[in-house]
Design a protein around this nucleic acid. Structure first.
Length: 488
RNA sequence: CGGGGUGUAGCGCAGUCCGGUAGCGCACUUGGUUUGGGACCAAGGGGUCCCAGGUUCGAAUCCUGGUACCCCGACCA
């Protein structure tokens, strides 16, 4: 009728687009590859942001803000970093417009050319380390544990709402340490925070691991990642935490005096997650009826729908429920909109992924009960109004955990160990998901595997045990299995 | 950046081949009847047909260029 969603089986990409658009999360904007994040989508981001921010602060981090524009010369100071980002930077060349003397609106004023061009940050390591150079003189100035919430721009060739947009919102942590050991601990700590956030709040199971050299962040010594699996069997890199070694300290000449009066280079980390997480959230849980949101991140957790329409009696009953739920910190709305009938509202709230719906009509009131519908399983039950608060509170917790369990069961079933390349290819083609395979550790083999199978090395899982074996492609010796998948 | 597709009312589309002054469904407005899973009847309102140029007496339709989005590849969070 009003809003049809393409089914996942028919066209997975179109299903995703339909959910983003019809679920009210985002729209395309007038600028290529950029999106308008609409209130429902932005509210999810705000919930993610607030929770992560809390976790960052609990571990001693503070927020700051560095500029959007970076002098072009900064980017070229770290060789690997330039290599990684040069191809996707937006460049500011002028600072003024003027009326077109030939008519036809405004043109760039050729006399307003910048002495040094500016780039729009694709990430902020360079401008931050240029500042750290002045901030860090002594071991007493360390560590610096700064995070910033910001937008960044990466001029990608192909974009998809939330998953890869030209401009996106994220947080980037940038820390400076006196020792390598401390920086590594920080890198791993932030990876753990991301994993905890993904699993406990997004209900999205992830595999923690370290990236292969080929997949590593430009300028990092080691890149740690959390990898999630989407319902179509493709992997999604959901967050990364980098041990940057002394690469940026060298590039920006950031040294400090130790307590032994020696001069040493500073050790660094950076770590980030972005609005891409929203794409991961959608593709982990949602179904053909619309979004399914975990209660801990849902902009609205409970909606009460009067049946067939609002009346004073129903309003009284709803008020009592609202008071009870709000006292428990549960967000709830009583839908008094008389333009639509209940059936329409049911479909609409299902589309938007509201975890719990309470259907309240006179028939229910006469029996002192309410109809409770959970979005994740679409189960409906009638529950006594006495103790409804306890029931809903428990139900939300149950939805949160069962969404995680369901996603984890699927993910675990989609991890396949393979020992020869035919099987490697066949599993990817017929089943999808993660493939655990031996690899000889060379970039050449990794690239060859990608060419042949479209699958990339996602990570070397942190919990993997050393295991002697032979590379799935070359037969060369290998000491452990690596996680491969086709990825977003 | 290559290949394919699409752009017409808020949304989804027909009309384009074969040029003649724009239509359907949903949504919207008004009135009425309805109401436990996307209500029904009636009467209305709403359009630079993506943009710019060209051909023509006349262009949504033909030609040229541009632009945006979608799908598939190469590059990436």
């Amino acid at each position: 009728m009003a809003k049809e969603i393409t089914s996942r089986s028919e066209d997975y990409s179109q299903w995703y687009n339909d959910l983003v658009r019809k679920g009210g999360l985002a729209d395309h904007s007038a600028v290529k590859g950029c999106m308008i994040i609409k209130p429902h989508g932005y509210a999810i981001w705000e919930n993610m942001r607030d929770q992560l921010d809390k976790m960052f602060k609990e571990t001693g981090h503070v927020n700051a803000y560095f500029p959007l524009f970076i002098p072009k010369s900064f980017l070229s100071k770290e060789a690997a970093h330039v290599e990684g980002f040069a191809k996707e930077c937006a460049v500011i060349t002028h600072y003024r417009l003027m009326n077109d003397p030939n008519g036809g609106g405004v043109i760039v004023d050729p006399s307003a050319k910048l002495e040094e061009e500016l780039i729009v940050r694709p990430t902020s390591e360079t401008i931050i380390w240029d500042a750290y150079k002045d901030w860090i003189k002594s071991y007493r100035d360390l560590p610096i544990l700064i995070n910033q919430w910001a937008n960044v721009v990466r001029w990608e060739m192909r974009t998809r709402l939330f998953l890869r947009t030209t401009e996106f919102l994220w947080q980037e942590g940038h820390t400076a340490h006196a020792t390598a050991e401390e920086a590594v601990i920080e890198t791993r700590q932030m990876l753990d925070i991301y994993a905890t956030f993904a699993e406990e709040f997004m209900a999205m199971p992830v595999i923690k691991g370290v990236k292969t050299a080929n997949e590593r962040f430009a300028g990092a010594e080691d890149t740690y990642t959390i990898e999630a699996l989407m319902q179509d069997g493709k992997a999604l890199q959901a967050g990364t935490s980098h041990f940057l070694g002394q690469n940026f300290a060298k590039a920006f000449d950031v040294k400090f005096m130790t307590e032994h009066n020696t001069e040493e280079l500073v050790w660094a980390t950076s770590w980030g997650v972005s609005t891409r997480l929203i794409g991961g959230l959608i593709m982990t849980h949602s179904d053909d009826e619309g979004l399914i949101l975990p209660p801990k991140l849902a902009p609205l957790q409970v909606v009460i729908v009067p049946i067939p329409k609002p009346t004073p009696e129903l309003a009284d009953a709803a008020d009592k429920i609202i008071k009870d739920l709000k006292g428990r910190g549960i967000s709830v709305k009583y839908d008094t909109d008389e333009r639509n009938r209940p059936g329409f509202k049911f479909a609409e709230y299902e589309m938007k992924g509201i975890p719990v719906r309470l259907g309240l009509g006179m028939r229910d009131l006469e029996q002192n009960q309410v109809e409770v519908a959970r979005r994740d399983t679409k189960e409906k039950t009638s529950v006594s109004l006495d103790g409804i608060g306890d029931y809903v509170e428990n139900l939300l917790a149950d939805i949160q955990s069962s969404m995680f369990e369901k996603a984890k069961k699927y993910r675990d079933e989609m991890i396949t160990s393979v020992d020869d390349f035919d099987e490697f290819q066949r599993v990817l083609d017929e089943k999808g998901g993660f493939v655990l395979a031996h690899w000889d550790g060379t970039v050449e083999t990794e690239k060859r595997i990608k060419e042949l199978s479209k699958a990339t090395a996602r990570c070397i899982p942190l919990d993997s045990k050393p295991e002697a074996g032979k590379c799935v492609l070359t037969g060369e010796p290998s000491t452990q299995r690596v996680l491969f998948a086709r990825a977003y």
